[in-house]
Amino acid sequence: MPKVIRLYVHYVDKVNRFIGRCAMYLVFAMMGILLYSSFMKTFASPVLWSLEMAQFVMVTYYLIGGSYSMQEDGHVRMDLFYSQWTDKTKTIVDCVTILFLITYLGFLLYGGIYSTEYALKYGEESYSAWAPSMVPIKVIMVTGIFLMLLQAISCLFKDIAKLKGESLA
Results as ranks from 00 to 15, higher is better:
P2F: 09
P2H: 11
Y8R: 10
Y8P: 00
V9D: 07
H10D: 11
V12W: 06
K14C: 13
V15H: 06
N16S: 06
F18W: 14
G20V: 09
A23S: 15
A23R: 03
M24D: 08
M31K: 00
G32R: 02
G32M: 12
Y36H: 13
Y36R: 09
Y36N: 04
S37H: 03
S37N: 09
M40V: 00
F43Y: 07
V47L: 11
L48E: 10
L51C: 06
L51K: 08
Q55M: 13
F56G: 04
F56D: 06
T60P: 00
Y62I: 14
I64N: 03
G65N: 10
S67T: 02
Y68F: 15
H75D: 03
F81R: 10
Y82W: 15
Y82E: 05
W85E: 04
W85A: 07
T86N: 05
T86I: 01
K88P: 01
T89Q: 02
T91G: 02
T91L: 07
V93T: 01
D94N: 07
L99A: 15
L101A: 09
L101D: 03
L105F: 00
G106M: 12
G106F: 12
F107N: 08
G111Y: 12
G111F: 12
A119L: 02
Y122W: 09
E124A: 14
E125L: 11
E125F: 03
S128W: 03
W130K: 00
V135E: 07
I137Y: 03
K138E: 08
V139A: 08
V142Q: 04
T143A: 15
I145L: 15
Q151C: 07
Q151V: 03
A152I: 05
A152T: 03
S154Y: 05
F157E: 10
K158P: 03
D159P: 02
K162P: 06
E166M: 07
E166L: 10
A169P: 02
